[in-house]
């Protein structure tokens, strides 16, 4: 339909492609396939634990005077986990899921750790993942707000000024080719040297990652009205501000929400990365770092899963806001 140019905006489907179709399918039909896929992934994870943890399993068994092949420890060291597991299937399978510091923790070990560090400890405790998640989330949200705000401002400038289009856009693109892991320590050091520490340096790194999708999405969105739409406003002798507020901005919203979903996930990555080089004492990044210092693989995986859950919740929250906003705007197709 030529007269509805904005409805099929890219990103309108991100996170929930085809609302109507999803609605129909969600009524019972899709639960089984989804559960099947989840079960298959978990089975694969358990299966992978056996060869991954085989070296430890076989060594433990040898120490307990259980016969293993090959007999000599030196021969075993040169073998891959898969070969060891195949040579000692019983031993490898029996203790693959119960080790204290497994190379790959089993799902239930991660789940138990998650439960122990969320439900069984006070949320203010240093051991609580909720506490660490909140530390990371607060920096994520602050950085996300700064980054998105900056992105929208830059996009507005780019759409209205050819000079900005030519000067800012290349830098924005270049900024994203620099590995964040390389630039994060520099940001922290520079900000520390001028007396800024705490949540703000992490938020700056989050903002650094999240402004880009906002710029790209908003530039595309603000430019989405076609020539006819713009001509219509010219026939009203509408000012630039009116054109922006009444046409460009509402037309860009579906694009903005697609960007926000990418941006919030990037923000979370930024905040976690920002916690790594500082030796931060709190936050999911700090948990990852501490876990890797002390070989606490279960703790690392628990922090990873917590970060994934956090990202899913954040993206889901934006999806809810998107649905409410767009449906209040009447964009419900």
């Amino acid at each position: 339909m030529i007269d509805r140019p904005f409805l099929s905006a890219p990103g309108a489907g991100i996170g929930r492609s085809g609302r109507v179709a999803l609605w129909v399918r969600a009524r019972g039909l899709s639960v089984l396939p989804v559960l099947t896929v989840v079960a298959a992934l978990l089975a694969l994870w358990y299966l992978a634990c056996i060869p991954m943890n085989a070296a430890q399993s076989v060594t433990d068994a040898a120490r307990a005077d259980i016969a293993v092949t090959p007999d000599s420890a030196r021969d075993r060291r040169s073998m891959s986990g898969l070969a060891l597991a195949l040579a000692n299937p019983g031993v490898a399978a029996r203790s693959a899921f119960t080790q204290a510091r497994p190379r790959l923790p089993a799902p239930h070990q991660v789940a138990r750790e998650l439960w122990a560090t969320t439900a069984l400890v006070s949320p203010t405790s240093n051991r609580s993942l909720i506490h660490h998640a909140w530390v990371t989330l607060s920096a994520t949200l602050l950085g996300f707000v700064i980054g998105t705000g900056l992105g929208i401002v830059l996009a507005t400038g780019i759409v209205h000024s050819r000079v900005m289009d030519l000067s800012v856009m290349p830098w924005a693109i270049v900024s994203q080719t620099v590995p964040i892991i390389a630039i994060a320590p520099m940001i922290i050091v520079v900000l520390y040297s001028i007396g800024i520490e705490g949540i703000l340096p992490k938020a700056v790194i989050s903002a650094y990652l999240s402004f880009f999708p906002a710029v790209v999405g908003m530039v595309k969105g603000l430019r989405s009205p076609d020539r006819m739409q713009l001509d219509l406003l010219r026939t009203y002798a509408a000012s630039g501000a009116a054109t922006f507020l009444k046409l460009r901005l509402p037309a860009s919203l579906p694009y903005l929400f697609a960007s926000l979903k990418i941006g919030i996930a990037a923000s979370l990555v930024g905040a976690i990365v920002g916690e790594l080089p500082t030796g931060a004492v709190a936050g999911l990044g700090a948990r990852l770092l501490a876990g890797s210092y002390y070989g606490q693989t279960v703790q690392i995986w628990a922090a990873l899963v917590a970060a994934a859950i956090l990202a899913a919740l954040a993206v889901g929250a934006i999806g809810v806001i998107e649905r409410i906003t767009l449906s209040r705007l009447g964009l419900r197709l």
Binding site: D3, R4, M228, L232, T235, Y236, A237, K246, A251, L329
Partner: peptide, 30 residues
């Protein structure tokens, strides 16, 4: 600039985020 004419385009070009009333109101708001 004196808003001397109304222009009707080939396509209706109504804003999908505005009701019919809201679309008719658009020039009046501007």
């Amino acid at each position: 600039r004196a808003r001397a004419y109304g222009y009707v385009f080939q396509a209706a070009g109504l804003y999908p985020w505005r009701t019919i009333g809201g679309n008719v109101r658009l020039p009046l708001e501007i």
